[in-house]
């Protein structure tokens, strides 16, 4: 169980796909203009990542080495199709904004990368931990990015047409944050912040030892 937790926690911190490994950035930066969309994108990634990890790990002994990549891709593509159709049916307003990003989860490096680097070499239990951990790590970062951009870019956070939080009326939101360059700037500061936190953490660990 402790091994399970260790793998799960790795995805959140030291191997966070976004701030540390820096893979799968395209969708992250693009959909993080709205908290609500970012949340659904994160859920889609967690689902596809965990399910494809489970399936790949179950069949890892029968998948021939030479054709493993196409097999992984087909597995991932099937789960992505499920997400694509479910979202289209139940949350059409979100689907309209996420649009092309749902099909593009297929080529999201995080998912293929975890199938290749983890699920293909480990048991089902650990693969679930890895999928959930990596997925949650992704979710946290994308949600945080979206909160910053939506709150300071529009002055409020909206959840299905009802306002959750809003800044005082005198606040004039800089629309730069919502535009494409804003994503790059905010994300750069987030990486620097993550580095600072990791550094402090290491220093404290050394001090305690």
């Amino acid at each position: 169980m402790s091994e399970w937790m260790r793998v799960f926690r790795q995805g959140l911190s030291v191997e966070n796909p976004l701030t540390v490994l820096m893979i799968g950035l395209c969708a992250t930066l693009a959909v993080s203009t709205q908290f609500q969309n970012a949340l659904f994108m994160g859920l889609a990634v967690i689902f596809v990542l965990t399910m494809s990890n489970v399936l790949v790990s179950l069949f890892r002994r029968v998948i021939p080495d030479q054709v493993r990549i196409p097999i992984f891709i087909v597995v991932i593509a099937s789960f992505v199709t499920i997400v694509d159709l479910v979202m289209k049916a139940y949350v059409p307003s979100v689907y309209q904004v996420l649009g092309i990003w749902i099909p593009l989860i297929v080529v999201n490096c995080i998912i293929l990368g975890r199938a290749e680097a983890f699920a293909y070499r480990n048991g089902v239990g650990l693969s679930i931990a890895d999928g959930l951990g990596m997925g949650t790590g992704y979710w946290i970062v994308i949600a945080l990015l979206a909160v910053i951009r939506e709150l300071f870019g529009t002055g409020k956070i909206v959840w299905f047409e009802s306002t959750l939080i809003s800044l005082p009326a005198g606040y004039a939101p800089p629309s730069l944050l919502l535009l494409f360059p804003g994503a790059f700037f905010v994300f750069a500061f987030m990486i620097a912040g993550a580095r600072l936190i990791n550094e402090r953490f290491e220093a404290r660990k050394e001090g305690a030892a």
Binding site: M22, L179, F180, P181, G182, A183, F184, F185, F187, A188, F189, I191, A192, R195, L196
Partner: peptide
């Protein structure tokens, strides 16, 4: 120190993107 490597690359990309916007 904190911005060396990728963070500064992101900021550069942001400025470049501003030009395209």
């Amino acid at each position: 120190r904190l911005f060396k490597g990728s963070p500064i690359a992101f900021i550069t990309a942001g400025l470049l993107s501003l030009a395209y916007v």
